[in-house]
Amino acid sequence: MVRHSGAGSVKFPYLPATSRIIAVSNPKMTEDRALVCRIIEGDRQAFRLLIRQNERLVAHMVGRLIDRDEDREELCQDVFLRVYEKIGEFNFQSKLSTWIATIAYRHSINHLRKKKIELSDIPEEESFTAHFISEDNPEEALADQEMEAITLKLINLLPAQYKTVLTLYHVDGMNYNEIGEVTGMPEGTVKNYLFRARNLLKEKVKTYLGKEEVL
């Protein structure tokens, strides 16, 4: 049971000393703690607030990995139900948003596995690059769509791991370390995937831009 000792101060008797030091020095962590404590005490408005604060993060993760629109919202709901069930186990070793993103990532990957959607390993660099770049005819695509729409489609063609890293970095503004926590990848791998994915996309976009110039 968490006790409030006065206005603005919250005690966390069940936490290790290092976590308490982090909480005091980081206002965001302190906010997270207060919010989690309120949820554990049964404050429904606090959980509603948690949803509002993190729904975009979850939507980005699920939306990027899951193609079917019908599945997306239900999956996002499932993520928050899981958060509600497990909130008592959150140990404040990371930011609350990072923990929620981890749940969203695992949930999305499990969904892809259940639907038997192949989660391919990251392919060999040269063969995958060649395959990715020469997939369709740029002239036809350019006639119908804007460059940005094409690029977004290209992002969806990437392996799930690439898409996850790109989304967390560019849309949600996470750093390499936080992305590593969410995905379980070493920081070096995160960095490598990020550079490689952007490079692959650039090579493909170049073929479209090249056609544009010729036309």
Binding site: V58, A59, E73, L152, V171
Partner: peptide
């Protein structure tokens, strides 16, 4: 890459 992929 900055575009949000999905809105709830």
């Amino acid at each position: 890459l900055k575009k949000e992929p999905y809105h709830l």
